[in-house]
Design a protein around this nucleic acid. Structure first.
Lengths: 342, 342
DNA sequence: GTGAAAGCGCTAACAC
DNA sequence: GTGTTAGCGCTTTCAC
């Protein structure tokens, strides 16, 4: 009850004048059957009375399973991660696993640090949402045989379980949407190309422009190095300055899109009247924005759920073949895209 | 290096033909001084070569300190928590502590569950952002002598360390701002009154209205039971329906304010032209909204930082007197408030 | 069906 | 300055 000292298995055993092993068996659903129901009931009663809670540290030390999964996301502030985390946590906690959450500041060295800290804490596996296309933090997990799944961003090489976004399908949706509105001169404001999602969207853009019979004007492709508003502002400004005609921008993600809109406005251009803008991710509250952003939604909670399921399964079946789960994006039409003027 | 088996202190000791205790001492900065620098160097070298990482579980079991702090927030999706978390994590990780993060779904029973799970994991202390004014989950921590600090929401009784918002100062700022714009009929759309922040803002509203010589019209105070947009919509509708004149709404928080604006628009009223609305919290991206919300900002990262510092200090000084840190809010003027019409 | 005993990896008296 | 030893709380083989 209101005991100040911790109650251990031994305490329960002493109270009942039985052995700790019997107490352990009584409290574990899997071994409970070995004991008489009466003993089990007695143990449960006294455990409840004394307020016994298992010491996971001791369990972990003994069994080698910490029941912890390390989860690393790039950035706590980016609103796309909470739903992914929620998906992860829901599945993990159902299976009595606990997430150890850290953020990498979008930095491989920090990620590696966190991974090592988590290794100290004997995590049973990793869910990494922070991977770069080449990433020594991820490679470290691989080299140390730490069960690992990436979610969203992935390595170039398919060396581990991964949950990926069908970025090509997403960009196709975006471009077809713009084309259906009559746009011909479509610009692309990229995210970082050293991140798979950034790169895949960039490659998909070029491919889809050509696939739809438009001409690919390389000068309408501007390369950013971050998935941030700031980067979007820079890219927007660059696009505007070069004075080449364009009536629409496909952005690497929503934050970049928001930055582009900001740059357009600063230059006296209206979105969508002068330039349509389309984002990627469908971050929260977009519908309430001054310019409600048309975007490509991804099923974030599902991605988290998938990631957790995959890592849990990997722990049980270490030898199973590599998983590669692809989630499908969806177009969300809002007010930042409209019919092309000319 | 790429060892598949875990490297233990014993492995290092065997390699160097010394005792594990020497290895332990060499690796611990505090006991390093007991050994010859040469030995220390040797141990560090071999530890590095074999890729030794300490087993925190064993450390925890031995020392009784898990170096984990349990952190419970009400809701992962609410954008005000990430900055608080960030503040917490930054301080904790500096001190080699790791947060165990869970969310309570704004539900005392769930919070209690999570607390018990964390107790199993031997957390050294708790940071709770999920407290209700009466809260048996918090009481459980108290009763079990688990070092605990609340951040933001607090118990009615000051029984434990707490980081609180000066809600009265915040509401004062809001009301004075509206009065300076000529508003006289000011409504209040409350948050839940069983949460300290909700209740304190409600009480402060009544007090400040009177303190400024306005008449307190109880019918202009509508009570919600959640800090959500949905609740805000309901409250806005109720305010509009009763057909009493009001030119401004003070909302329990930003989400409620956003809901009010939504209700106003549905009723054909414009914000701020017909009704000014002011929120609380200054959630992210508000400046980009269609109606950029005027609000009361709170220093969220600082709150998290404070909470972590307080709990860390409490671990070192269990007998110190109860802490009560108050953070000060600030008015952020945006476009949702303007001069009263009449 | 239950007990005895070993040991997970580590730290911290206590020796010398 | 370094070794020896016990033991944190738990699970699990091996007895009986």
């Amino acid at each position: 009850m209101t005991s100040i000292k911790k109650v251990t298995l031994r305490d329960l055993a002493n109270h009942l004048k039985i052995n700790t092993s019997s107490v352990s068996r009584a409290l574990n659903p899997k071994t409970r059957g070995m004991l008489t129901p009466e003993l089990v009931a007695q143990v449960e009663k006294i455990a409840d009375e004394l307020g016994y809670v298992q010491n996971t540290m001791a369990y972990a030390l003994k069994t080698g399973r910490s029941m912890n999964i390390g989860v690393i996301i790039p950035d706590l502030m980016n609103p796309i991660y909470p739903p992914i985390l929620k998906g992860i946590i829901n599945v993990l906690s159902q299976a009595s696993y606990t997430p150890l959450i850290a953020y990498s500041e979008n930095n491989i060295a920090t990620a590696l640090d966190e991974i090592k800290k988590m290794k100290m804490r004997q995590v049973d596996g990793f869910i990494l949402a922070c991977a770069f296309r080449q990433d020594e933090a991820v490679e470290y997990c691989l080299a140390n045989h730490l069960p690992t799944v990436t979610v969203g961003r992935s390595l170039d090489a398919h060396k581990l379980d991964q949950i990926v976004i069908d970025n090509e399908a997403g960009i196709k949706l975006a471009i077809r949407h713009l084309i259906s509105l009559g746009h011909k001169n479509i610009a692309f404001a990229s995210g970082p190309l050293d991140i798979s999602d950034g790169n895949q969207r960039y490659e998909a853009f070029k491919k889809e422009i050509l696939a739809n019979g438009l001409t690919l004007d390389e000068s309408l492709i501007v390369l950013g190095d971050e998935f941030t508003e700031i980067s979007g502002i820079n890219l927007g400004e660059r696009l505007i300055k070069q004075d080449k005609p364009f009536s629409a921008i496909v952005a690497g993600n929503d934050l970049v899109a928001l930055g582009c809109i900001c740059a357009l406005e600063s230059a006296g251009l209206a979105c969508p009247d002068d330039v349509s803008v389309i984002g990627f991710n469908n971050m929260p509250y977009l519908s309430l924005f001054k310019t409600p952003l048309t975007t490509i939604a991804i099923p974030r909670m599902e991605m988290g759920k998938n990631a957790a399921e995959v890592i849990l399964n990997r722990l049980i079946n270490p030898e199973e073949s590599l998983k590669n789960i692809t989630v499908t994006p969806e177009l969300i039409e809002r007010g930042s895209t409209s019919i092309a003027k000319t």
